[in-house]
Design a binder for these strands. Structure first.
Lengths: 338, 338
DNA sequence: TCGCTCTCCGCAAACGTTTGAAATAATACT
DNA sequence: AGTATTATTTCAAACGTTTGCGGAGAGCGA
């Protein structure tokens, strides 16, 4: 009663032939006479027949669908990843189901359940900030569903992954500040349970060490959003900690810091040079424009999807997992240049 | 060979009972003995059984999935709409398939085909900038699949829709500038072939007329992005057009204008008051923060989805379509307040 | 006329699940 | 013991497709 959509059976009934003949006629099978083919194709076109993808999925045990678990699509970076994923998937005839975890562990677990229940052929995951238990990912693997992590990967979990070289990018960002002669550089760090948070901090430290600068604990502050940055800056100013540079774990944090400094009369980049991370829509519209790291979201999406499709098609039982590292590059703008 | 996922049949075989018994045991059917239920549930849990949603969809001719066609998720507004959609859909036990049209008509047509082929139970659409032929939407309707438009609707197409009152919002935005005593207010307008562009201009004009202010053609400038705004402002300054207010068709335009004014030494909001449209991530982080119109993307998503679900459940054959108008409201921030 | 080869088509089973109806087994009642 | 009742389980069909196999009919050579 529901779906008014035409089926092969409907066509068969109408033409007084069997469903199998219709099926074969539609795929131009040599066994079927030209006459029959013509009749079938004509009626199919006329009645706007669309093969029922659900029935196909069931029959072929392949849904031609890939699932994506993503923290939050509101971020420019993640939505560009999705665009990359979609483009590659569509070209390969695959559909995409996107699930937001909203940075919640629970939602992420539900998401994987949903995707498995819908028999997606493969899953792309970027883990939520909360996630520290990885059993749900094991479940995916137990069910032999190909899995590729992108950007936010699980430390120590042997799997395909595509990431940006956060450490190197953070190193370059910090080095860029050092090269401009800055010596007292603060890092606003992300949560240290995420690999990206750790790597960015390590890159910062590496650059400092390499330049023979001391690494002070009070220069590493956990602040990864606009508001926390504001508070952190106020604390710095109150404590009269002298600094001349800031490398922030993401752009929003950098911008929050920059504005707070500016409101207190501190000149950017004159007195303090600032570099963000994860180049988005924001960095180009601040004043001064913000030096930042381009994470190549779109490219990451395409590469991750290609890896996944490759796994889907060549289903080896014992794959050796690959890690693809994109080198992010620094986009130098006004906020850091003297 | 593929999906290693456990099925009801597997459980039945293992327990040497029939699939129907397993099915009933899993749903706690009274016909099944406690003993059997226990055995089934135990094995199901142990082997991590997930009902095959694909088979279910086929059987029940309902996929419990809704399809969403969206121009581009990179925009804050659209991604908040998606969040609203997802939250309502999930609560109702529905999945969501998101398709980006990327503002392309062709892609939009393919998207509808894909969604129909996958037998989604309903479709939410915001049309692309390119779309001027609506046959694909008729096809959706012919197939009796419920359809709700959100934000970008099809003029003259009788259907369920949820939109914001752009005209009213633009009127309020302009009136807000007038109430602060500003009399020479410019409008940076969007493309006039889109309804939203026209409505926002009309709201601006209405506010001016109502206040007895003259509406000058040279005060209405087509500029709807950061760069065009920059150029438009430079032209204004060069021509020494005296103004004291600006209402822009979107935030990015407002910000482009604001920064250009500031660079030329003009004080915002002191000399010129600025109001944007479509409250996003940007408006809170500019300096001064930007007065703007909150379009309630999340709410729009929830309402559109509720309408759609309602249609899905009560399938009347001859529905009378509804239009829901959200009144967008002005978020007053620093850029407009004297 | 028989047998062989083509050409074209239909049957039936399968994918995983649900569900009305029928079957079986166990128990109760007379 | 015979029958009715209840409890528990299985059968079979269906959702829309695909596909191996078998079959009908035609054409043809011997």
């Amino acid at each position: 009663m529901k779906s008014g959509l035409i089926t092969i059976k409907d066509i068969a009934r109408e033409l007084k032939i069997s469903p199998s003949t219709v099926s074969r006629a539609l795929k131009n099978h040599p066994d079927i006479s030209e006459e029959t083919k013509k009749a079938v194709n004509e009626l199919a076109r006329k009645s706007n027949y669309q093969p029922n993808a659900v029935a196909l999925s069931l029959k072929q045990r392949r849904s031609n669908t890939i699932g994506v678990i993503i923290p939050e699509i509101v971020h420019y970076f993640f939505s560009s990843v999705i665009s990359g994923i979609e483009d590659v998937a569509y070209d390969a005839g695959f559909n995409v189901i996107i699930c937001q975890s909203n940075e919640k562990y629970n939602r992420e677990v539900v998401n994987t359940r949903t995707l498995l229940a819908n028999r997606v052929d493969g899953i792309l995951v970027s883990i939520s900030k909360e996630t520290s238990d990885f059993d749900h990912f094991n479940k995916i693997r137990e069910n032999q569903v190909p899995l590729v992590f992108y950007d936010r990967v699980v430390p120590g979990f042997d799997a395909d992954q595509v990431i940006v070289d956060d450490l190197e990018a953070a190193y370059l960002a910090t080095k860029h500040l050092i090269d401009a002669g800055r010596k007292k550089i603060v890092h606003f760090a992300g949560p240290q349970n995420l690999l990206i948070g750790r790597h960015r901090k390590e890159g910062y430290i590496k650059a400092l060490r390499e330049a023979g600068l001391e690494v002070r604990d009070e220069w590493i502050i956990e602040a990864d959003n606009f508001e926390k940055a504001r508070i952190a800056v106020l604390n710095i100013l109150e404590d009269k900690i002298q600094i001349d540079g800031l490398f922030a774990v993401n752009d929003l944090t950098a911008i929050g810091a920059m504005q707070t400094f500016q409101k207190k009369g501190i000149k950017i980049p004159g007195q303090i040079g600032i570099v963000g991370f994860s180049d988005g829509r924001l960095s180009g519209i601040t004043d001064p424009t913000l030096t930042s790291v381009d994470q190549h979201g779109y490219e990451m999406g395409t590469i991750a999807t290609e890896m996944l499709l490759h796994r889907i098609f060549s289903d080896e039982s014992n794959p050796k997992y690959e890690t693809k590292v994109l080198n992010a590059n620094l986009i130098v703008r006004e906020s850091s240049v003297l």
